[in-house]
Design a binder for these strands. Sequence first.
DNA 1: CCAAGAATTAATCAATCGTTTGAACCAGTC
DNA 2: GACTGGTTCAAACGATTGATTAATTCTTGG
Lengths: 229, 229
Amino acid sequence: MNAQPTDASLDTRQRLIEAAILTFAEKGFDGAGIREIALRAKANSALVTYHFSGKEGLYLEALRYIFARKACRVAELAMAPALEGPGAREAALQQLKDHIRAFMQDLMACDPQDPLDPLGEAAMALMAREMQAPRAASSALLMEQIRPHVDHLMQCLRVLRPDLSWGDLLNMGMSIQGQLLYFRNSLGIARLIRGNPNYPEDLEEVIRHFTDFSLRGLGIPEAFPQPRN
Amino acid sequence: MNAQPTDASLDTRQRLIEAAILTFAEKGFDGAGIREIALRAKANSALVTYHFSGKEGLYLEALRYIFARKACRVAELAMAPALEGPGAREAALQQLKDHIRAFMQDLMACDPQDPLDPLGEAAMALMAREMQAPRAASSALLMEQIRPHVDHLMQCLRVLRPDLSWGDLLNMGMSIQGQLLYFRNSLGIARLIRGNPNYPEDLEEVIRHFTDFSLRGLGIPEAFPQPRN
DNA sequence: CCAAGAATTAATCAATCGTTTGAACCAGTC
DNA sequence: GACTGGTTCAAACGATTGATTAATTCTTGG
């Protein structure tokens, strides 16, 4: 067991985790082998059991590693003040816009200084896999991480559409989040269809589209005076 | 080898394929074992190699089996008459609505008359897995299947919003498809969030939501007289 | 400098993987 | 009844899986 990890082992631990993210993202949990991961991390495969008490533990630690490095921007927003009293509607509208922008920026770059971060790319692929088919051991971890984002979004929607039921509000949230996540997960196809390998060249333009589409879909006339035509 | 299969073997072949769809959908390609599939099909595991020349062959055959039985509804729509002349706008609007309904129904159930078809459910789960992490051997098969759906959707959007650029239309299509596909790809997490393992209990209600949200997002005021505040 | 403990290693474990084998089964046909 | 070709089966194959062991190296506080 690793009672009190030393500095030396931290390097190996991190290398294993990052190699695990890459490999799990490429081949899935069952497709990836600990020998392959260890080879990628230039470490011994036995260290997986030693440091993480098994393959499943390494997988969970990889998820935690992703959550710790991301969720930076959206997490701040979740701390926004409660929406009540006069001006609550305008505040909720602004928070929703900020939510979309922050989420998109979190989606597109793990490390803002490195837009072509392969680890961030793999991390999102791994998250997508996990969201589609949650493993029993990690679904709790996933929920715990996603919950505040969902709550924050729902809080905004509830103020903006107080007439809707909770189920309808969940549908609205699902549509909004769906656009954003699908955009990220289908970037490869989108670039082929558009014949532009650098798409999106201007992220702000995409953010604007998603914001417009979502607000109109939500049914908030005052936010968008009139959709022309 | 199976030069000319007899009637007797067709039963076994089909049982293996259907068991494969169920198992591959549940556990993925690597997670599912040949012995498990054969046990489910009440057949011998050696028959996988005999009939399909291996696990990979069985997987491809399972995908072909899905494509042959599905793609029925959306495929019909892709054959719809060209949209031109007077009434083109109304026709495009109806086709878009039909597209969303057909796509959702194809996503959720294989046979519309049997909404609780476990094979259809598994088939779409398998497709969703494949769409997110395409296997090299099957990506071409998948693309060929998807392409007409995208074309048909874009054709409708072009009529409904002739004022938009091609890039903007692609954004619209991305938002619409994103909702639908994300809905399918995140069913696992959605059921956790809603605390309802049977969600969606009423598919029509979901279809209605996606249709409303998409038409409003598209900016088609006549389709939805007014989103009540 | 030197035990003590953490970290790493090569070697090995039992289990399972997909596949192969060779014989048996089950129609039909002469 | 013997023969044939497609089908099915139990058994075993070699390879690989995740996990474990015991010995070794590295690090560190006394």
